[in-house]
C-alpha cells in the first residue's frame, strides 16, 4: 500500500471522496489526498517538472475553485488513482446508427448503417487514447513514482430507464442487447490500452444491472464535486454515484494495492 497516495479525477471523484469522509474507519490506515476538476479542465493541466499547473487563467480559477490550490506538487506521492474520464456514455453515439455485423441486433436482422468491425474498434481505440483518463494515467505513469490505478466512471443509473427525457441513446441501445455488447468491446480495449500504464479496476459486477446500467441505489444521493458543502446532484443526474458506490471503489483500490 502506498504511504502517500493521491486520488485524482473528474467529477466522479466525489463518490470515493464522500465515502472516505463518511466512514474512514472502514479502511484502517488508509489515507489519501484527493484532487478533482471537471474533465475538460483536467486537460488544461500541464506538468512542469513534477508539479501539475494550469495552462491558462481560466483553468487556474477552476483549479482554485475546486481544490483551493493553484498548483499540485506530485513529488512525494508513491501511488496514484485516477477516477473517471473514460466517458463510455459518450462513446455510445459512435454506434447510434452505425453498427457492425457482430452486434446482436444486426445478427438478429435489424437494420442499421453497416460499418466494419475494424472501424468500430478503431473509433473506440481513438476515443480511449484521447480520453482525459488516458492523459492522466500516462502522465502519472511517466513520473515513475509508483503504481497507477484507474477506475472508469460508473455506468449510468438504471433509474434513467423510467425517465423518458433522459439518456435515450443508452436506453435504446440497451434494449437491443447492443449496449452491453458494445460496453464489453470498449472494456476489452480499455483493459489493453490502460494496461500498459496502469491497473484498470472495472466496475464491481454486483453494482451492474442488465449489463449496462448501475444499480440505482448506488447512484441516488450523489454529491457534486465541490470542496465546500455537500451539494447533491439534481434528481435527473444519472451519471454520478453516491458514497455507497464510492466505498465499493475504495474497497477495490485497497485490495488492488494490496495485491501489487
Amino acid at each position: 500500500m502506498p504511504s502517500n497516495l493521491l486520488i485524482l479525477g473528474n467529477s466522479h471523484i466525489s463518490a470515493p471522496r464522500a465515502a472516505l469522509v463518511s466512514q474512514p474507519e472502514r479502511w484502517p490506515g488508509f489515507e489519501a489526498a484527493t484532487f478533482g476538476m471537471p474533465g475538460g479542465s483536467l486537460r488544461h493541466l500541464v506538468l512542469k517538472g513534477k508539479v501539475l499547473v494550469p495552462r491558462d487563467a481560466q483553468t487556474r480559477r477552476t483549479m482554485k475553485f475546486f481544490n483551493h490550490i493553484s498548483r499540485l506538487p506530485l513529488e512525494g506521492y508513491d501511488g496514484f488513482v485516477v477516477v473517471g474520464g473514460l466517458a463510455f456514455a459518450s462513446m455510445i453515439s459512435l454506434v447510434q446508427d452505425h453498427r457492425s455485423l457482430d452486434f446482436p441486433s444486426v445478427r438478429a436482422g435489424a437494420g442499421c448503417e453497416l460499418v466494419s468491425t475494424a472501424l468500430i474498434e478503431a473509433m473506440i481505440r481513438q476515443r480511449i487514447d484521447a480520453s482525459v483518463a488516458m492523459l492522466m494515467v500516462r502522465m502519472l505513469h511517466g513520473l515513475g513514482q509508483g503504481p497507477v490505478l484507474f477506475l472508469p466512471e460508473p455506468l449510468i443509473s438504471a433509474d434513467c430507464r423510467t425517465d423518458p427525457d433522459a439518456r435515450e441513446a443508452t436506453v435504446s441501445i440497451a434494449r437491443t442487447g447492443d449496449g452491453a455488447y458494445f460496453h464489453q468491446r470498449v472494456m476489452r480495449q480499455a483493459r489493453h490500452r490502460f494496461g500498459r500504464f496502469s491497473t484498470l479496476l472495472e466496475q464491481p459486477k454486483d453494482s451492474i444491472v442488465d449489463d449496462i446500467f448501475t444499480d440505482g441505489t448506488l447512484m441516488r444521493g450523489s454529491i457534486r464535486m465541490t470542496f465546500r458543502d455537500e451539494v447533491p446532484h439534481e434528481g435527473t443526474d444519472y451519471a454520478h454515484a453516491n458514497a455507497t458506490f464510492g466505498a465499493m471503489q475504495l474497497d477495490q483500490i485497497v485490495e488492488a494495492f494490496a495485491a501489487l
Binding site: S90, S93, L94, V95, Q96, D97, H98, E113, V115, S116, A118, L119, A122, M123, Q126, R127, A130
Partner: peptide, 13 residues
C-alpha cells in the same frame, strides 16, 4: 462516416 467518428479514423477508413 459515423457522426462522431474522429476525422483521422474516418480518413484512414
Amino acid at each position: 462516416a459515423p457522426p462522431k467518428c474522429p476525422p483521422q479514423v474516418a480518413r484512414d477508413y
